[in-house]
Amino acid sequence: MSVQPFLIAAAGLFSIGIYGILVRRNVVMVLLSIELILNAVNINFVVFNAMLGDALLQGQIFTIFIITIAAAEVGIGLAIVLMLFRNRKTANIDEFDLLKW
C-alpha cells in the first residue's frame, strides 16, 4: 500500500478539525474539534511507523503518549469549562471576551 492516501486523509482530518475550532460556538464543541486534530496526528505517527519499519516502534509509543496527554487535557479542559459555566451560566465562546481591549 502506498503511504500517500493515509497522509492525505490525516491532512484532511487536520483541516476539518481546524474548521471546527474556528466555527463552533460551544466550548465543548471546540474541544471536540481539538480531539479531531490530535487524532489526525496519531494517524500520521502510526503511518510513519509502518512506513519506516521501526524496530523501536517509536511511532506507536508516541501515539500512546499523545493519547494519554489528550485525555489529561480533556479532563482539565472540561473542568475549566465547568468553572466558566458556573460563573457565566453560558458555554458560548463568544461570551468569554474579557481579555478584549
Binding site: I18, I21, L22, V23, V30, I93, D94, F96, D97, L98, L99, K100, W101
Partner: peptide
C-alpha cells in the same frame, strides 16, 4: 488596531493560522 483584540479565542486562532 486595538479592535483586533476582541478577546475571542477563535479569532486569535484565525489570525494565527
Amino acid at each position: 488596531v486595538k479592535l483586533l483584540q476582541t478577546g475571542k479565542a477563535q479569532q486569535y486562532i484565525m489570525y494565527f493560522l
